[in-house]
């Protein structure tokens, strides 16, 4: 345990010194605030409070931004150290390979928690300062925060897997960008295309909900929007697509991805010969 804490402490310190933490918080906060102010006009009249409306639009922001931040934080974690020559010495110390991964992951996770916490939290503060009613909808914001952190952890695990797999830092960087484009952007477009083409057929009714839940970003969006939709009484066109899907499925997906990806990262890292 102390070895993990030691590695995590060092990683966090380096992330802090390299301005990673400030950068992550700034980006999350800035975009949250822009969305809250830009979105307040469009909210119109719904029965839901401003926080619930904000949670709904912030969920879409998080789908794109949180995976990107997480990948940037992690894609270079192991490969970069191998490349710079800082890792072999650590690997000869009495610390297990999985402890090195765990320590780095914990430090990255803390950065994600801080960035998501402050980023989304700043939206609440902004709404309160602007005279908005924050007596309802705090639960939606909190749900958004913890699920966004979970989404971030999944993509941290993706980034760590990339960092132990790619041979060169440049290859890791392009792989990270590629994963983001494919998993975050393209999968959505492809699923949408398939649903349109299927036009309410068997695919849309049976396979599609499960594919949606299988994709980590869609699972995140689904979980949040379904909960919010119930209160907003405005049809976001999500519910009809998820018929028959258990409520816990999206969260199970995220946790499943996290476990599998971390296990794969450790398995690959164990075989690396520095």
């Amino acid at each position: 345990m102390s070895a993990i804490a030691n590695v995590a402490g060092l990683e966090f310190r380096i992330a802090f010194r390299n301005r990673w933490i400030v950068t992550a918080i700034s980006i999350m906060t800035l975009l949250s605030l822009i969305l809250v102010f830009a979105g307040s006009a469009a909210s119109g009249t719904t029965s839901a409070g401003p926080l619930t409306v904000a949670a709904s639009s912030l969920a879409t922001l998080c789908v794109y931004l949180v995976p990107l931040l997480a990948l940037l934080l992690s894609y270079d974690a192991i490969g970069g150290e191998v490349d710079r020559g800082t890792l072999p010495l650590v690997m000869t110390c009495p610390v297990r390979r999985w402890q090195i991964i765990a320590g780095k992951f914990v430090a990255q996770a803390i950065v994600v928690v801080i960035a998501v916490g402050i980023g989304i939290g700043s939206a609440v503060v902004a709404i309160a300062v602007g005279g908005g009613d924050i007596s309802t909808g705090l639960g939606d914001i909190f749900r958004l925060q913890w699920t966004a952190v979970l989404l971030g952890l999944v993509f941290l695990a993706v980034g760590n897997l990339i960092s132990v797999t790619a041979r060169q830092p440049a290859a890791a960087a392009s792989l990270a960008v590629g994963v983001w484009i494919v998993v975050v952007v393209m999968v959505d477009v492809a699923l949408l295309g398939a649903v349109v083409a299927d036009d309410g057929g068997v695919f849309t009714k049976t396979v599609f909900p499960w594919l949606l839940a299988f994709s980590p970003t869609d699972a995140f969006r689904l979980f949040n929007l379904l909960a919010i939709e119930a209160q907003m009484e405005s049809n976001l066109a999500v519910a009809p697509l998820t018929l028959g899907l258990p409520a816990f499925a999206p969260i199970a997906t995220l946790i499943g991805w996290l476990v599998v990806l971390l296990a794969a990262t450790v398995a690959v890292f164990r075989r690396i010969e520095p």
Partner: peptide
């Protein structure tokens, strides 16, 4: 031998002492 540039000499040494 290479070390993390962002750390101080003492921090890096303490890291190895703890490890």
């Amino acid at each position: 031998v290479a070390f993390h540039k962002a750390l101080s000499v003492r921090e890096q040494l303490d890291f190895f002492i703890r490890l």
